[in-house]
Design a protein around this nucleic acid. Structure first.
Lengths: 342, 342
DNA sequence: ATGAAAGCGCTAACAT
DNA sequence: ATGTTAGCGCTTTCAT
């Protein structure tokens, strides 16, 4: 038994040997009962079970994991769960992982590379069965050696990002294609001057994919991507609103607004509303924010649920010794609400 | 060394003895270096450090925790991180915990009591140093024995909920008082028919606190809480919107709307906007949704950051052997935006 | 069906 | 300053 005797509370842990002693059997037998091995006689099992109950015995999961060399743990890294997008992903991943018997070690890294590396190490020290990297923020522009090194210790799964390197597996949404299609839908609706507003930081792979998609779309429609109509702002409702207001004031001409994130679309929407300008607005992520907007925002759904379910399925499959694809790409879908109907 | 040899990837774990052998020292010395004990000669430390680097040695955190009988882990339970409110709390808790050297085991339980109990056990099996219960959803109306039992294994911290029982520590916002004050502010603004819209499920302590606060406020202002003006709906924008539309259609008279959650306030706001009815609207939680609304929603801030920081500080303090209060209550604050200025 | 014993990777006395 | 040794709680051969 272990007495955890901090000054103001006291906890007694009874262990497998205590139970064994109480039952007059060996620890091995108790272990067999816990892991319901068939090789235990019904009466013995019965006795052990009852004793465990009475003694309020709780098996130590890590000791057990220690013995069998698997902590049944996945490390989930994201920039910040307070961000709705990541919160959604984490929620889905946790649910799927639990369904397969894995616990989730959550780690919010921020965007600082030094911190990220440190957190990666921290997670690997817990001997997680896999590390799951959420979002394209973990893909550095040039040097991804930290990910390669992590992958040397445990399989790495990237949710909505892609890096080609051994033991790293990626499931992501084709955001480039999604943006191209959004532009085309707006074009088909008769729009010829489409404003694209984004918050792409230089290092963001996802951001550059979306931007490329917008350019693809414009080109395919025979439009020229004017500099005025591709606007970069810092993330947030207000920066987007201010920028769009500015554009309107300056007399910049546009007949639709497309954004790289719902939050930005909402900012744009607010500016348009204030100016009495009624044109289509399309966001991205199809988050709850889109429904909160008035009028409700049309938004590109990047299939988070599908992606998360697949990622965890693949993880389990890999851990079970199967071969899995290094890369899976799923297509997005435009969810049409009030601000744009094709 | 341990070879993790699933079919399609291979991982080699080098352990403390490998390093010791490579350096020609004992494992104890390596351990000392890892935990930077002063009792190691500079050259030896140097050698060990270099060797660890070269061998890409990553200490096993759980083995170490095993040895010192503390996993440096906290279990965070919430209904669902996809909910912005919980996401916020989890984010804050994780940040604070990490700052104090604790990892976060995240567990989304849903609202089913059987599931909750199972998850509680699951978390306790990981020998967490503390379990943190987020939200009042964990306080059952009558039987809280599962929490008491958990508290027998590890200190339990409740974020924004309260149960009086040994080894359970609670930090929460005085939502009753907050609601009372919100009502009074609306009264002072000249409002006499205040609609309160909430989604209180019977078991929700937080919900009943808020409702009581509304009643307190009405009473103190000499108003009678008419049944028509206290409306319960299921959570979500649409239910709230529909209900408020109904009320307006039925000619129910009210001159302000107060809600138990921002989401409901947004629903109410949409109905009011559609009906061209311009009256104050006040939400609760001061979530990002409040800023997304148009016009921006005034909302009661329940001091999440303060609460989370205090909770983790207390946890660390308790684990360090100090005495901490079983209950701390903080007051809320009305954040004024477009929909209501006192 | 059950037990004995070694070992998982590390820490923490206790020696020296 | 360094090594030796005995655990931490459980799993897992290998016997019986």
């Amino acid at each position: 038994m272990v007495f955890n005797a901090a000054t103001h509370y006291r906890v007694i842990f009874v262990n497998i040997h205590d139970i064994a002693a109480m039952c007059g059997v060996s620890a091995a037998t108790v272990s067999r009962v816990i892991n319901n091995s068939p090789n235990v006689s019904p009466p013995t099992r019965e006795l052990v079970l009852r004793t465990m109950q009475e003694a309020e015995y709780i098996p130590n999961a890590f000791a057990s994991g220690f013995g069998r060399n698997s902590m049944q743990l996945a490390g989930i890294l994201c920039r910040d769960v307070a961000n709705m997008y990541y919160a959604n992903v984490v929620s889905l991943l946790e649910r799927e992982l639990r369904g397969k018997g894995f616990d989730s070690l959550l780690c919010c890294t921020g965007r600082n590379l030094t911190d990220i590396k440190e957190r990666l190490t921290s997670v690997l020290q817990k001997r997680v069965n896999a590390v799951i990297l959420v979002g394209s923020a973990y893909r550095e522009e040039r040097d991804n050696s930290h990910i390669r090194e992590a992958a040397a210790q445990a399989p790495v799964f990237m949710v909505n990002a892609f890096i080609q390197t051994p033991n790293v597996y990626c499931v992501y949404c084709d955001e480039r294609d999604a943006m191209k299609n959004a532009v085309k839908r707006l074009f088909e609706d008769g729009r010829r001057k489409i404003l694209y507003i984004h918050d792409m930081a230089k290092w963001a792979w996802s951001g550059s994919q979306k931007l490329a998609g917008v350019r693809d779309g414009l080109t395919e429609c025979g439009l020229t991507p004017g500099d005025d109509l591709i606007q970069q702002v810092t993330n947030g409702i207000d920066p987007a609103r201010r920028r769009v207001s500015d554009l309107i004031e300056r007399g910049v001409d546009f007949d639709a607004a497309l954004a790289s994130e719902d939050l930005l679309a909402i900012g744009a929407q607010k500016a348009l509303l204030a100016a009495g300008k009624d044109i289509p607005v399309v966001g991205f992520n199809n988050s709850q924010l889109a429904e909160c907007a008035t009028p409700e925002l049309s938004s590109v759904d990047n299939m988070l649920e599908t992606i998360c379910v697949m990622s965890v399925d693949f993880m389990a499959s890999l851990l079970a010794g199967n071969k899995i694809p290094q890369k899976v790409v799923v297509s997005a879908e435009l969810v049409q609400r009030k601000t744009f109907r094709a």
